[in-house]
Nucleic acid binder design. Structure first.
Length: 484
DNA sequence: AAAAAAC
């Protein structure tokens, strides 16, 4: 099966080949023929499944096949995304895929010059990618009109709802022609999303790939119990692992992300933070340096949990666990992309143990418990000594903190390991899956110590996409009440 | 409860 067989025209196939794509992913196989017919689509899929190409390619083709004069400030296709980074990424892809089809693409979101947006839209474009707030702003100022729109795409619809975009969405949809094609993508399908889809879509085809929990199966997952105050020491040790190509470290709060950056800086480890309180230039710089490899550690809030598509993220650290278990799946889905392997390591403080249980319930994978690595006590003591009691940041910094002994004693504790024995992988990872594990095994993983044996792992087959609700296993979107 | 998003 190739892209031409799905019905895509030569300029699109050529653009795909230029990117090295020859085989459609499952969501592309299922969506492209349907969308080429002009049908509405309800897609249940997360990023990393090839979703963007699945809706951009057929949309471009339909626009090319039915050429229309574009009026100033108008667009033919609108893609709405929940974060600026995602909007930017989608626009880049659209430009790429449309480069031999003469597609014009504009992107608008907050934190950037509104005059530039106005200029970009002055003659109208084929494809507009936007976040809701800035788009509404531009519409109110008459710099954008949606009156001639042909195709609407809502990406990450469940996150849009979570973020309180519902009012803005309704407002935008009210301005659109009734006669249009509507595409709706969501990683999950809670009732609120289904109702919204019922209102926005007409007789949609439904496409479902990679239910939310399957990403978790491709990632080697580990967890360590550690005091909240000693997580920094643990992270510092892990980050000395030379096998880390690029890593994302997730924190629960924006302030927490900044604090980790600062503390790592004291330990001589370069890192950037990305979160919603950073200016747009700061956000772009952080992401740019991460992508280019200049800074290989990116500390992020859940702003980066979804959609951020950076190749070569070998490790994801949950410095703090998310309290919404689905968010964990999105986070660890930043690694093991495009068939690569990946490692996720969660730091679990006492008050986070219940979150871990919820996550295990959702993913049906129990992370392998790792003991604190060798050298941890020394590292924690060193950090504590350099940090006067009562201050948890750089409030005072005496010069005794400036020189630090080289970490000679800790090399044996590096979370590396050459996969000496192949043991201690979280069960449920079937061995036969290409065998392409890079041995990126974290500290202590080789000795699960008898405990931590994954329970409830006996899922037959292990790997194929699991149908929710089909096996009566209590999956689905039902959130079970906290046990105990 | 915190996250992102318009100035």
């Amino acid at each position: 099966m190739n892209f031409a067989q799905l019905g895509l025209a030569e300029p699109l196939v050529r653009a795909l080949e230029a990117k090295g794509y020859t085989t459609p992913t499952p969501i592309q196989q299922q969506s492209i023929p349907t969308l080429l017919q002009g049908r509405d689509l309800l897609g249940i899929a997360q990023t990393g499944t090839g979703k963007t190409a699945a809706f951009v390619l057929p949309s471009i083709q339909r626009m090319v096949e039915a050429p229309k004069q574009i009026h100033p400030t108008h667009c033919r296709m609108l893609v709405l995304a929940p974060t600026r980074e995602l909007a930017s990424q989608i626009a880049d892809s659209a430009r790429d895929y449309g480069k031999f089809s003469k597609m014009s693409v504009a992107t608008v979101f907050g934190g950037t010059s509104i005059n530039k947006n106005r200029q970009d839209m002055s003659r109208g474009v084929d494809i507009l990618v936007a976040t809701p707030g800035r788009l509404l702003d531009l519409i109110e100022q008459r710099f954008v009109s949606l009156a001639m729109l042909e195709i609407l795409v809502l990406d990450e619809a469940d996150q849009m709802l979570d973020l309180g975009f519902i009012h803005a969405l309704r407002k935008i949809v009210r301005m659109l022609p009734k006669q249009r094609q509507t595409l709706f993508f969501s990683a999950t399908m809670p009732n609120a999303i289904r109702e919204l889809a019922d209102q926005f879509l007409k007789d949609p085809a439904t496409v479902k790939v990679a239910p939310v929990s399957t990403t978790a199966e491709r990632v080697e997952q580990f967890a360590t119990h550690v005091n909240q105050g000693e997580k920094q020491a643990l992270l510092t040790i892990h980050l000395r692992n030379p096998e880390i190509e690029r890593c994302l470290v997730f924190t629960r709060t924006k302030h927490g992300a900044d604090r980790v950056v600062k503390l790592l800086g004291h330990a001589g480890i370069a890192a950037n933070a990305i979160h919603g309180n950073k200016s747009q230039p700061q956000r772009e710089r952080a992401l740019g340096e991460f992508k280019s490899g200049k800074v290989k550690v990116l500390i992020a809030t859940d702003i980066a949990a979804r959609g951020i598509d950076v190749s070569g993220v070998s490790h994801v650290f949950n410095f703090e666990l998310p309290n919404v278990p689905e968010q964990y799946v999105h986070r660890i889905g930043r690694t093991a992309r495009a068939g690569a392997s990946g490692v996720a390591i969660s730091f679990v403080a006492d008050d986070e143990k219940s979150y871990l249980r919820d996550i295990e319930k959702l993913t049906r994978v129990k992370p392998t418990m790792m003991p604190l690595p060798e050298g941890f006590t020394a590292e924690a003591a060193k950090i504590k000594a350099n940090r006067p009691a009562g201050s948890d940041d750089d409030r005072r910094r005496d010069d005794s903190g400036r020189h630090r002994a080289p970490p000679k004693a800790t090399h044996s504790a590096r979370p590396t390991g050459q996969r000496a024995d192949g043991a201690a992988r979280p069960a449920g990872h079937s061995e036969g899956r290409g065998g392409d594990n890079r041995g990126a095994r974290p500290a202590g993983a080789g000795r699960p110590g008898g405990q931590g044996r994954p329970g409830g792992q006996g899922r037959p087959g292990g790997n194929g996409p699991r149908r929710q609700g089909a096996g009566g296993g209590g999956g689905g979107d039902r959130r079970s009440p906290a046990a105990g």
